[in-house]
C-alpha cells in the first residue's frame, strides 16, 4: 500500500521498550468508536501501529459477551493492551484487569480509574492504589494519569515502568494543555517510557508531544471520529515519526530577536 509510512528511515533502528517488549511504532491506537471493525482494521494497518488498546468493562456484560469483537481485535495480529476504561473504583479496575489478563493472555493493562464522568479525569488516588495491587499481582501496568509529578513518583514506586500522562481530557481533541508540566515530567523521569495519552486531536499535537521528548502517543477519538479514519491514522503515524526524528536530530534553539546582540549589516541606523 503506502510505503511512505512503513519505511521511514531510522524508524527500525529506534525502537521503544515497554516492560521489555520492543516496538518500532510509537503510535498506540484505541479501538473504540470506529464506524466499523473493518475500518478499524484498515486504520491500524495504515498507521503501522503495533499496540492497540481495547476496553472490556462495558463490553463484557454479565458473561464475557464481547467475544466476537475481541476475536476481531486478536485477529489484527498486533499486541493488545487491554484497558479498564469506564472503571470508577479500584475494585472495578482490578476485576476488569484480571478478566483482561485471562481473555487476552497478557500481563499488560492500561489502568484507568476515572474520577469524573464528564472530563474522564483520572482519580489519581485510586489509580495509585490499583497500580500497587496490580503490580503486586504480576501485572505490567500502563497508568493513565495526569502530569502531576508527585502522583507519577508514587506510580513508579508502586511498580509502574511506564507513565501515561494526559495531554487534555479524553476525547476533547485540545492537544497539550500543559506543555510545561509535560516537559517537566520528561525531565524528572528521564529513564521511564512516557506516553502522552488522551486529548490529542491533531497530528501536530502528537508531533509536539514527541518533540517534548515523549516516547510515544496513545490516541483513539482523533482517528476513530475523523471523516476518513484510515487517512487520519496515516497522518498521525507520519507526524509521530516526524516528531521523533526531530528530537533525535537535536533541534536548534529558539533565538530572541527582540534583543539584538550583534550589529546588523546594511541597515541605515547601523552604529548610530
Amino acid at each position: 500500500m503506502d510505503a511512505m509510512t512503513h519505511n521511514l528511515p531510522a524508524a527500525a533502528a529506534d525502537p521503544v521498550t515497554f516492560y521489555g517488549t520492543e516496538v518500532t511504532s510509537r503510535l498506540l491506537l484505541g479501538t473504540a468508536q470506529y464506524p466499523s471493525p473493518a475500518i478499524l482494521a484498515e486504520a491500524i494497518r495504515a498507521s503501522g501501529t503495533e499496540i492497540v488498546t481495547v476496553s472490556l468493562r462495558r463490553e463484557s456484560g454479565a458473561a464475557k459477551a464481547g467475544q466476537s469483537f475481541w476475536q476481531l481485535i486478536r485477529d489484527l495480529g498486533v499486541k493488545v493492551l487491554p484497558n479498564t476504561a469506564g472503571c470508577r473504583t479500584v475494585k472495578e479496575a482490578v476485576t476488569t484487569a484480571e478478566m483482561a489478563r485471562e481473555l487476552f493472555g497478557t500481563p499488560w493493562v492500561k489502568l484507568e480509574v476515572i474520577g469524573e464522568d464528564d472530563t474522564l479525569q483520572p482519580d489519581v488516588f485510586g489509580l495509585v492504589e490499583a497500580a500497587r495491587i496490580l503490580t503486586r499481582d504480576g501485572f505490567q501496568v500502563f497508568p493513565y494519569t495526569t502530569e502531576d509529578l508527585v502522583v507519577a513518583e508514587k506510580l513508579v514506586s508502586a511498580g509502574c515502568e511506564v507513565l501515561m500522562p494526559w495531554g487534555a481530557p479524553i476525547g476533547s481533541g485540545r492537544g497539550l494543555n500543559n506543555p510545561y508540566g509535560l516537559r517537566s515530567m520528561r525531565a524528572h523521569f528521564p529513564g521511564i517510557p512516557l506516553v502522552v495519552d488522551a486529548g490529542v486531536g491533531l497530528p501536530s499535537h502528537a508531533a509536539a508531544a514527541m518533540e517534548l521528548g515523549y516516547d510515544a502517543v496513545l490516541l483513539n477519538t482523533a482517528v476513530a471520529k475523523a471523516g476518513d479514519p484510515v487517512r487520519m491514522a496515516r497522518a498521525f503515524a507520519a507526524a509521530i515519526a516526524a516528531g521523533r526524528e526531530a528530537v533525535i536530530a537535536d533541534p536548534m534553539e529558539v533565538r530572541d530577536m527582540a534583543a539584538p546582540s550583534t550589529p546588523v549589516m546594511g541597515r541605515a541606523l547601523l552604529g548610530s
Binding site: E59, G61, A63, A65, G66, S68, F69
Partner: peptide, 13 residues
C-alpha cells in the same frame, strides 16, 4: 451500541 452479543440485559449505566 455496545460490542457484545448479550440479549435482553439492560444496564444502569
Amino acid at each position: 451500541s455496545i460490542e457484545n452479543d448479550e440479549r435482553g440485559r439492560v444496564t444502569g449505566r
